[in-house]
Simulated assay, not measured.
Amino acid sequence: MAKIAVITGGTAGIGLACAEAFLADGDTVVISGRSAERGSKALAGLDAGARARYIPCDVTDPAQVRELIEETVTEYRRIDVLVNNAGGVIDQGRPLSELDEDNLDRAFTLNVNSAFWACRAALRHMLPRGYGRIINMASIAGKIGIPGLIGYSTTKHALIGFTKTLAKETTTRGVTVNAVCPGITDTELVEREAKAPIEAAGFDFGQLAARLTGDLGRIIDPAEVAAIVRTLASPQCAAISGTTINIDGGYTQF
């Protein structure tokens, strides 16, 4: 049966690649983001008619996150898959001693709280049905430290902990929860929000990227991440829950 999938931050990069992967399987996707212009552009590129919809959502607002899920269920009668892809870098390359007092709060709101709110809203529909697939977009920064990204790395570590704990609550009830940890991926967000902060912190982005791609020797393509997300979202993956999957050319092996 075709799935109904909601993807936050789905108008570009990894999120959009995930939408393309689900559509290729015959699924219906709801992509969200803050920009209606980017949403319209993404829908035009997907060219999937009624099987793709854009719903505006700022994931730092719990009311908007809740409305994203409720509007999806109202239209499609269910939600089968939730991909918490929205996130970003707040640090701007500054060391801890120079960060604003609310820096970590803003990073947690964007990278952790947003997933908490989306999962809570989705589970209210998934658990009564006894079925669901949740995939949280973490990062290898959630397993190691990366200079200049202290807030990002801290919150991605937290997202992994959240994933593992939530899986303990839901797997026996038919809902799996997993995290995907990409290495440096060829997206606009990496260029805009990771490269500049890392270089501002005095580190060479190119050298760091080369190390963080392990034996692969190149940065990751968003489609490679989407392929893993699509697999975790399948009905056949009921036995995979509470895990993290690294996509980084073998650099991170834990």
Rank of each mutant, 00 (worst) to 15 (best):
Arg173Tyr: 15
Ile134Lys: 05
Leu159Glu: 02
Glu98Gln: 03
Ser40Glu: 13
Cys18Ser: 08
Ile146Asn: 03
Lys143Gln: 15
Lys156Asn: 04
Gln92Met: 07
Arg218Ala: 10
Ala196Asp: 06
Gly87Lys: 00
Thr244Gly: 01
Gly9Leu: 11
Ala19Phe: 11
Ile198Glu: 02
Gly151Leu: 09
Val73Asp: 02
Arg173Gly: 04
Ala118Asp: 06
Ala5Ser: 14
Gly130Asp: 04
Leu23Asp: 03
Asp204Gln: 04
Asp47Phe: 05
Val112Gln: 15
Thr74Met: 09
Asn136Thr: 14
Leu212Trp: 15
Leu212Gln: 15
Thr163Cys: 09
Ala122Trp: 13
Ser35Gly: 06
Ile135His: 14
Gly148Lys: 04
Asn84Lys: 10
Leu82Val: 10
Gly242Asn: 12
Asp100Thr: 09
Glu224Lys: 15
Ala107Phe: 11
Gly148Phe: 03
Asp61Ala: 13
Val190Asp: 12
Asp105Ala: 14
Ile4His: 09
Ala5Val: 14
Arg133Gln: 04
Pro222Asp: 12
Pro197Ser: 06
Gly142Gln: 12
Asp102Cys: 06
Thr171His: 03
Ile31Phe: 08
Val225Asp: 07
Cys57Asp: 07
Asn113Lys: 06
Ile160Ala: 03
Ser32Thr: 00
Leu166Val: 07
Asp105Phe: 06
Arg51Ser: 10
Arg173Thr: 03
